[in-house]
């Protein structure tokens, strides 16, 4: 590629190359050269002529938008989209997660006994059931914040998600 740029300016060769590639609309010109290009065309009748010629093709391209999606495709795409989680499914999922985390913590605290994890799971189930039973009637309906509240209650911070408990099971 020839170096047709001058320091801080724009040559006719480069301006022509820009117009031939990107057309008449400065919004489509390379952002780094847009200001210089606009200044150039403002001071050059010859450059303005190139722009006018390019605008004709731009207008023709604008007159031919790309094909749109059919209603059938729209319906199919929406049908295959992820389904919203129901509140009960989300709560059940939250309960499973919390129960496993509590069991992991108990197994971490008492790793020497083989029954730590099963016992922990049982205890965790009771704790989760107790908490959800009491809180379900009057806490926020937002299951996610409920989940975070539960973490905060037991562990002080929801950042327990970042703990690595993989080695202690």
């Amino acid at each position: 590629m020839t170096n047709d740029m001058t320091s801080g300016g724009m040559t006719m060769d480069r301006f022509q190359a820009i117009i031939e590639a990107y057309g008449a609309n400065p919004e489509r010109w390379p952002s780094a050269e847009r200001d210089r290009g606009e200044a150039f065309v403002a001071n050059s009748p010859e450059a303005a002529q190139y722009v006018a010629q390019a605008r004709l093709l731009d207008d023709m391209l604008d007159a031919a938008p790309t094909a749109d999606a059919s209603a059938a495709l729209l319906g199919h795409v929406l049908d295959t989209a992820p389904r919203p989680q129901t509140r009960s499914a989300q709560v059940a999922s939250d309960q499973r997660t919390i129960r496993n985390r509590i069991a992991d913590v108990l197994a971490f605290l008492w790793p020497q006994t083989g029954i730590a994890r099963p016992a922990g799971l049982l205890l965790a189930s009771l704790m989760v059931g107790f908490f959800f039973g009491f809180s379900g009637a009057n806490v926020s309906t937002d299951a996610e914040s409920q989940n975070e509240d539960l973490f905060a209650y037991y562990f002080g911070s929801p950042e327990i998600d970042d703990w690595d408990l993989g080695d202690v099971q």
Binding site: T66, A67, D68, A69, L73, L74, V77, L78, A81, P82
Partner: peptide
């Protein structure tokens, strides 16, 4: 989902 589909489906098909 609807916002995303409105934004991108036509462009993808086009």
């Amino acid at each position: 989902i609807r916002t995303f589909v409105d934004r991108h489906l036509g462009r993808t098909v086009g």
